[in-house]
Nucleic acid binder design. Sequence first.
RNA 1: GGCUCCGUAGCUCAGUUGGAUAGAGCAGCCGCCUUCUAAGCGGCAGGUCGCAGGUUCGAGUCCUGCCGGAGUCGCCA
Length: 591
Amino acid sequence: MNVYADFQSRLAAMLEKRVAAGELLRDLDLDRFVVEPPRDAAHGDLSTNAAMVYAREIKLAGSTPRAFAESLSADLAREPDVLKIEVAGPGFINIVLKPEVYQQVLRTILVEGERYGAGPRSKSGPVNVEYVSANPTGPMHVGHARGAVFGDALANLLQFSGRDAVREYYINDAGAQVDVLARSAFLRYREALGEDVGPIPDGLYPGDYLKAVGETMAREFGPALREKPEPQWLPLARKRATDAMMAMIRDDLAALHIEHEVFASERELTGADGGVDRVREAIEALRAKGFVYEGRLPPPKGAPSDDWEDREQTLFRSTEFGDDVDRPLIKSDGGYTYFAGDIAYHKTKIDRGFLTLVDVWGADHGGYVKRMQAAVAALSDNRARLDIRLCQLVRLMRGGEPVKMSKRSGDFVTLREVVDEVGADAVRFIMLMRKNDAPLDFDLAKVIEQSQDNPVFYVQYAHARVRSVLRQGQAAFPDFDLAPSAFAGADLALLTDDGERDLMRALAQYPRTVLQAAEAHEPHRVAFFAHELATRFHAHWNRGKDLRSLRFVNENNGKLSYARLSLVTAVGLVLASALSILGVSAPEEMR
RNA sequence: GGCUCCGUAGCUCAGUUGGAUAGAGCAGCCGCCUUCUAAGCGGCAGGUCGCAGGUUCGAGUCCUGCCGGAGUCGCCA
């Protein structure tokens, strides 16, 4: 039940009738107006700009927005659930609803439970959400966490809003750096065989996490590989090292409650190990459409680069789709560029039937957005839409001081360390409280603080407080059935206090918030909603300190207590629902 | 130099896809605990929404140009 969407369609019907009656132009775009909660509660429960957005059409029909608003209000006033209506300013229509509407909202929440606000199954088809996609060359560090949490919450949000969402991870296991990884693992293999390898040379990965790979290889091969030439052991070491790294990364992600359904290997797409060369197929598909050619690029402008070599190469005509220059697909050594592999990967998404694609990248990849969108447009003949969400950097702090992250390898802070220290809930919620394209300070000291400075705690506490109140209510009235569905018999008309109304208004906005957050691909809106609802709940709870009569549980008034406990239950259900979209737990108590 | 993102209270950030008098939290000041967990709540004060134009009934939001910051700029991923 979405009050705003409900009135939106009723108004649309009224406008259509006027069009049919010849009062307005024929092809009126009925999506242009909105019905929204006014910023100022004094303006009522609903507000619409319908009379103003069609000002031009209204003028043509010989009226004014204000007069048109008056006339629309007359129609709206006849709606059974409208209590009061008035035209304000240049033509806003403000609607005050009968209390029964909010009582109905409450009943809906109690019946639907955590499904309240969830969208009906969408007809827009499945969404593909690709996120994390970190190189399999070591453990995840905190920088990866933001995109990981963002992508995961976005997928949750899309699913809640009715889309099918598939979570994918693209494994960058084809480039030179995985060869470096393999050599690093081979060194650890020799070490595991008892050889003194000394300090790890520059250019190899020094992390201890490769020791286990070396030991596994020593057990598997014994000394057999040691004297072989590199071309013989490299593929073996690469396979074992990348497999081990992916297992480690999946473990790190699991600690954040993140699980992908599809892992796509770049190396597999290139056909390097004998499979079909999907990259070549993708390039040929683009060539067939006329978007691939052999040509030369102008040298980069600005800072002159020493190693610029003018040469003819295979180029994708991304400028056709708004990119600045065309982009190379084949490197000078004959291998595919990263971009070429990514094109092939995105082609598999399109081939699998996805027309809505979301990629979550670090902000340092911002320069690749246009070419990737160009490739998706070219591959799908403009049918697929690729939204790329860039996540800004995370600055790790402790008590206001930046945590030093030396470039010296092995000295970075791993994701696992942070999760072990502050917990998955804190990491997830903080990362989601900020818009993804704004930088974020993550303070290790603050996020475990139990105070209102810490939004994780604040929101979880609101939920715990709900549960506590319900326990108190049960203690005071042992006969009460506090199962959500049992509240059908509660007399909700008893909920007349401003604070209670305020809470119900907030609850009524949840479906709208979720819908908008899903459409905008902005899970942080759900986090802000949860925080806002928590604020209202804490505020109302506190009024019960001054005025005993406002407390949820009144020992000498069972009917009233029961009605209020139904409201408390609804608040708890919606908080739990929002938290579950964010992937954060809703605790029973905070101790 | 090109492109992308950002610029809102002293600080950290929201801002309902163009709506009404721009909102929270922190920090500051003033109040509220014989408690449904004060791990909280209320109040006061705080603003040329970077600057200048433009679009229209209406701009923090859209367009153009500047200023300032971050990222990025063929063969890294």
